[in-house]
């Protein structure tokens, strides 16, 4: 199970990549595997303001659905438009091609985990 270092992880299985004041958010390899083949992603439009822990969308597979929670607070500045046509990118490439939103962030959730701690969470 891939859990890249250098990313932060939420207990609700989102990952965050911090670059300057921009946070890129997606779901982990574990999350996509649990859901199975993803068929649809609902994401907020750019300009949406999010609080840390807020629901920002949902993912659906054939047999499951899951809400997405923002690990940061801030304003959505970009949305991965490729996911509309190819939601399977989240399955095939969860940490790169399957990214969901970019947020100009003002705060991080205090409960974010390191790669090692997230790995422990999954083992527990």
């Amino acid at each position: 199970m891939s859990i890249p270092e250098g990313l932060k992880y939420a207990k609700t299985h989102e990952w965050v990549l911090i670059e300057g004041d921009t946070a890129t958010i997606g779901i982990t390899a574990f999350a996509q595997e649990q859901l199975g083949d993803i068929t649809f992603v609902e994401l907020p439009p750019a300009g949406t303001s999010l609080g840390s822990g807020d629901e920002f969308g949902s993912v659906e597979s054939v047999k499951a659905a899951s809400e997405l929670y923002s690990p940061v607070s801030g304003e959505v500045i970009a949305v991965n438009a490729d996911l509309e046509e190819s939601p399977g990118l989240i399955n095939s490439d969860p940490y790169h091609g399957g990214w969901m939103i970019k947020v100009k962030f003002s705060g991080l959730s205090p409960e974010l985990l390191s790669s090692a701690d997230y790995s422990k969470l999954l083992e527990a």
Binding site: F40, S61, V62, K63, A64, A65
Partner: peptide
């Protein structure tokens, strides 16, 4: 499109 339905989404 069953992910919209009660047997999966329950209260939502």
């Amino acid at each position: 499109l069953q992910a919209r339905e009660q047997h999966i989404r329950r209260a939502r």
